[in-house]
Simulated assay, not measured.
Amino acid sequence: MKFGNLENLIYFIFPIFMMVILIMGLKKKNRGLKLLNLSNNKKISHLKIFFISIGTVLVCISLLSPEKFLEEQNVERKGNSIYVLIDTSRSMLTKDVYPNRIEGAKRVTKEIIKNLKGDKIGIIPFSDSAYIQMPLTDDYTIAENYINVIDTNLITGGGTNIYEGLVIANNSFNEIESDNKIVLVISDGGDYDKKVLDFIKDNKIVVYTVGIGTSKGAVIPDNQTTGFIKDEKGNVVVSQLNSDFLKEMSNNSKGKYYEVNNLQNNTLEFLTEINSLEKNNIKNEKLAIYKKYYQIFLGFGLIFILLGYFLKGRVKYEE
């Protein structure tokens, strides 16, 4: 037999404290003990204290949730494994999405995580390079915490290297032998890169893309100055959403394209889409089955307390 709630051990202080009070009160014939019907007969009084104390101890034991192991069952969990690639390049500081693109991307990702049901999710930020910030997990609380710390200073360089992010995600999928390789790319698109399209096709990755920004675009704030980022000729750079490249990525891989700006956000359709896919066996768990015995201890505890209280005999109490 084992106990499932050992943190409740602290409650054993009550029967110990009560026994001390009862014994001290009995010696002094404290009027406050009248509620317990203590008798002039020491044997009866001691018996009442014994029953009430034992009953209280049994009730406290019930709070520890005594249980006995019966068997172990295999539980199969099904779901999809999804890597979210989040663009952290400098252009994600553009404010054509409130308050800026990077915060909009984080907001979208957290909305998706909150609505996942059994799927595993991993996070790969990318800029000039990429890395796995969080491996595939079904702990959505931890995932949201990782999302909160993402910003454009996470990776040096400031470019948009979607290719490296896809390579890292694909390698991770291969390690776990995943049947469905699902990637969600959240980006403003960056520059057209044919090797990205070839890699997606060759490795049979299903890519869903979220274009964040507007076709009109806006200037990119420079974190190191109070101005804006300029090109080599000294002209202020205007960053525009490259939706065509993102659409081509998703269309060539049986995925879909979604768009986020201040007027629209249809990314929750992504959840409907992945829920329609065939679920893979992503986790086999062993579930321990226990038989609970707290009811027995609780029942006998209450019986002992009632027996102790209703034992006959009263005492004359000092005024």
Rank of each mutant, 00 (worst) to 15 (best):
K216F: 06
A105K: 00
Q264D: 01
N115G: 05
G255R: 07
K106G: 04
T141L: 11
L268G: 04
T225N: 15
D188F: 04
F3I: 04
P15L: 09
P66N: 08
V183D: 07
Y140Q: 12
K279W: 04
N30G: 10
P221S: 14
G32L: 07
V57P: 04
S215N: 07
S91W: 13
I13W: 01
Y192V: 09
E164F: 02
F310M: 05
F199Q: 13
N153D: 15
D96K: 08
T160P: 06
N171C: 01
Q133H: 14
I52G: 07
N40S: 15
K43Y: 09
M24K: 12
R31P: 03
A130L: 11
V185A: 02
D231K: 10
P15V: 07
K286R: 14
I186E: 01
I142F: 10
F69Q: 13
G301Y: 00
I123L: 15
L22V: 03
F3C: 00
N170M: 02
I82N: 01
M19N: 02
K68T: 14
F17K: 04
G255W: 12
K291Y: 10
M92G: 04
Y309V: 13
N41H: 11
I54R: 05
E72Y: 00
N161F: 09
P125Y: 10
I289Y: 00
S172P: 03
I82Q: 01
S91L: 13
G189N: 11
F173L: 09
A218Q: 04
N180D: 14
G157V: 10
I220Y: 06
K216C: 01
L277N: 04
R107L: 13
K181C: 01
F297W: 09
F300M: 14
I23G: 00
K204A: 14
R90L: 03
T156H: 08
S81C: 00
K292H: 08
L307D: 03
Y146W: 09
V236W: 01
I21E: 02
E232V: 06
N266K: 04
G255E: 12
G55E: 00
N80V: 02
N252P: 02
T109Q: 06
N115M: 13
F300W: 13
K283S: 14
F126G: 08
S39Y: 01
G159I: 03
T88I: 14
L93R: 15
L26I: 06
I168M: 12
K34V: 12
M1L: 06
A288D: 11
T214Q: 07
A218M: 05
L26C: 01
S129H: 12
K316M: 05
R107T: 15
R107S: 15
G157L: 13
K43L: 08
M249D: 10
I296E: 09
F14S: 00
M249K: 08
V260N: 11
K312C: 01
G313L: 12
G227M: 00
P15N: 13
N242Y: 10
